[in-house]
Design a protein around this nucleic acid. Sequence first.
DNA 1: GTGGTCTAGACCACC
DNA 2: GTGGTCTAGACCACA
Lengths: 124, 124, 124, 124
Amino acid sequence: MRWEFHNESPIYAQVMERVERMIVSGALPPGERLPSVRVFAQEAGVNPNTMQKALTELERGGLIYSQRTSGHFVTEDQAVIARAREALAEMQTERFLQSMQELGFTSAETAELLHRKLEHKEEE
Amino acid sequence: MRWEFHNESPIYAQVMERVERMIVSGALPPGERLPSVRVFAQEAGVNPNTMQKALTELERGGLIYSQRTSGHFVTEDQAVIARAREALAEMQTERFLQSMQELGFTSAETAELLHRKLEHKEEE
Amino acid sequence: MRWEFHNESPIYAQVMERVERMIVSGALPPGERLPSVRVFAQEAGVNPNTMQKALTELERGGLIYSQRTSGHFVTEDQAVIARAREALAEMQTERFLQSMQELGFTSAETAELLHRKLEHKEEE
Amino acid sequence: MRWEFHNESPIYAQVMERVERMIVSGALPPGERLPSVRVFAQEAGVNPNTMQKALTELERGGLIYSQRTSGHFVTEDQAVIARAREALAEMQTERFLQSMQELGFTSAETAELLHRKLEHKEEE
DNA sequence: GTGGTCTAGACCACC
DNA sequence: GTGGTCTAGACCACA
């Protein structure tokens, strides 16, 4: 299953975000070994260089670490993961607010709609 | 400028949503004439039949109307447009809540984060 | 404009009915000269022999008469035309009852629906 | 057995009406599985896409429903079928009145002729 | 096998 | 030119 990409940001950044989500959501648990760059790249349908760049960037952020001979691993530092989770949450919240603004919704209207949805969910 | 499509829903449905957004956001104002099916299809990078299907569906929903020899036009009925705007807003709110849930955020946490963002925005 | 035919009855009979309707409805007034067989056949998109047979049959019924050298003419006998009109009316009434019966409507239901329609029309 | 079509309305609409009649008349009973799109199209002598469009439209009207992998089925909702039956009956009643009007029959004359036919039928 | 979607290419009526 | 319809042929997911 090749991954899907859009043209608005570089593919390596999209790969980064996707791997980050896998880690943050627990699909890739702390300490887990990632597939080799070559294999991972093929799964994603990207060039190995692209995957390499994405992983290097993630390593710089501390979410993963690499061991020269045995591959890349998810960090065991829960605080780092938690921080990434917060960052992702903030990002998609901003995207959401942005998209609501494009529909002409003010902040107040957006908040009001969200609360209505939440109440509705509680009823279920 | 070919449009971007993903594989999760049929292209004609994505075209519909995109045109709907253009109308709801005011990029295509009420009464405005759309590009001809053939031209519009080429802009979007889809087959004219696919564009035709999308426009026919939008027409059924009342958001646009067609005149045999002169083209497709955005409805002048503001109420219809307002209803579409609400529907889109609800949809993306649900998507947002869904994506937050995938990060492990509860409804309360999501609401709290959103309010923090909104306050932050007011300060700007 | 070639005429349309179905396969349930011979084409000459369908041509007959069509010409009969033109006469009865006044599109071809009493005494009017019909187009020549050749021309009429071409208009209808049928073989001249077929048109010839249709006209011969109509002549037998008295609706038209032929003059050796100058062609076919609509009868001037209003009584004959009136009789043809009655016959056509009976035929299509029977067809109508038949089609209602195929939908499972009894005679009473059909009559009731027809009256409702007629009242509805008077209101207009 | 290819079906017959005229040029006054799109083929898909004529296919729709024909299938509707089969359902309403009971030739296709509630819950019955229709032939597959491809087979049905071949029976009717139309392109599979045309048949697909006709069935999609009928589905929208609720007269049939489709199951992705197993085919199209007549609805089990008798009320929907009854409503379609009424609509068809009204349509052909209007056609009948129209055709009588073209022969110069007034509403009263039409009603009178119909009653004569009905009485005649009862005698049989 | 099933429905559904997509593309390509053609034709039509209307103005 | 416009929308609309039709055909032919292909591909996909699903079970």
